[in-house]
Design a protein around this nucleic acid. Sequence first.
DNA 1: CGATCTGTTGACTGTTATCAACTCCGGTGG
DNA 2: CCACCGGAGTTGATAACAGTCAACAGATCG
Lengths: 260, 260
Amino acid sequence: MQAGFAFSKLADRLTSLVELSTDDLDLLADMPSSIAHFGAHQTILRHGDEATQCCLLLHGYLSWQNHESADGQITAICVPGDIANLHTLYRPRIDGNLIALGPAIVALVPHRFFSEVAERSPAMSHAMLLMLLADHAIQRNWTVNLGSRDALTRVAHLLCEITARLQIVGLARDFRLSSPFTQSDLAAACSISPVHANRTIQELRRCNLLQWQGKTLTITDWPGLVRLAGFDPAYLSVRSGADDVRPPYARSVTADVALA
Amino acid sequence: MQAGFAFSKLADRLTSLVELSTDDLDLLADMPSSIAHFGAHQTILRHGDEATQCCLLLHGYLSWQNHESADGQITAICVPGDIANLHTLYRPRIDGNLIALGPAIVALVPHRFFSEVAERSPAMSHAMLLMLLADHAIQRNWTVNLGSRDALTRVAHLLCEITARLQIVGLARDFRLSSPFTQSDLAAACSISPVHANRTIQELRRCNLLQWQGKTLTITDWPGLVRLAGFDPAYLSVRSGADDVRPPYARSVTADVALA
DNA sequence: CGATCTGTTGACTGTTATCAACTCCGGTGG
DNA sequence: CCACCGGAGTTGATAACAGTCAACAGATCG
């Protein structure tokens, strides 16, 4: 696993939030990390523990689940490039369980590394803060999603969000995304029952909005899905232009292929 | 309006998150602010605008409402001591509308003041960051509330949260809280219809958990309400001991009486 | 080749939304 | 002082959406 791989999607993510110099991004090159593989439904961080490392997601999906709700309510989903527990830098006590949705690859990075990066570069410090704020904005949007949409538009909106977030880090550009998660996972994120999630997905298929075959999900009518969901990507905090121009570090994605 | 008043609840709030020296808190004494009064349903910040000031809530309640959902879905509620839009320090574009629930008094503080406080005192900078993280934790908890609880426990949980947050800043110590908001406001926050909110509150009354007379709400059985809601205040990020010992600045609450 | 997990379907149930009417209260103006 | 008005709270009847239960089909994997 090359060093260049571990931070390329993180660099994409950060530069989507704020303009960063090459010097700033080069700070990430020294990132000390151990790579860990996880299987579906495996727990990565456990409620109540004290974190000392950040979990930088390289491949797959992670979910934060509430520890007390019986149905395993999903409160957040991480995509590659996300640091699942950046907030534990400042408040190490973990609230909820971090669980892999399908096979996932994570770079475990000591808290100290990010603290030092933030100390050395005000721009990086700012970028990390914006990453926290973006997470918050997404969370607020989930409140809206659960509160004001019915099952069909709720699932549609979640799929829009995941697709848009994948595109920020150079995935799903052709609206084909790997879906190692199950329909029950989607149900837990949308707070609907698994059987209703199934019927909802069938409805989306019937409208020719998407295909879900095996572990690949294809959005066949992106404008249609966006319209149905009422999806407005503004809340994702992507600065204008950042998603058109591929940032410099994003081009070294050859290692990704080796992973698949 | 004395200077001592404007920041006393903010000081309470900050010291509930992290230990602060008297020197740190004294930085707040220079706070330049203009005091603004708002009436029920009045808009304080409008979606799409760029904020240049922070809204420090002194009295009453504020709500963040989604600008596109027709029913005016409430995504967050602010209590005295909260800075409603602290995040606009770093990302001034406003997402959603900030609307008063009942009469409210707000101190408008230029962004620059908080930037300078954060620059001068690392402890205050940390405290402000923790305030943002606490807001995030509350938001995550709303996701759980909407996703995994039925109407009765959902309303009960929200009331528990508001009560606990008021107590952090020295209000509702006797489980009596002013409720200038309407049942419809509660409904919008819990994503239920106004008539169902009404029936739910009647049910809570029938169980002798609370009384709601005029503009005062009295929790008559706090342990019972907590049990029903499954409320665990851990997510509010209050450091242990902080809510037992009244912090120094909290004692200057004489001005509050003048407001009521 | 069986075991298990995921997806699929049908029948039934239940919580909550919607609609409509009515009461109650605080304020306002004649 | 009283009549009126609008907003908030309350009630009942009905409808819609989603949950639950149960069974089966299909895939995947040792």
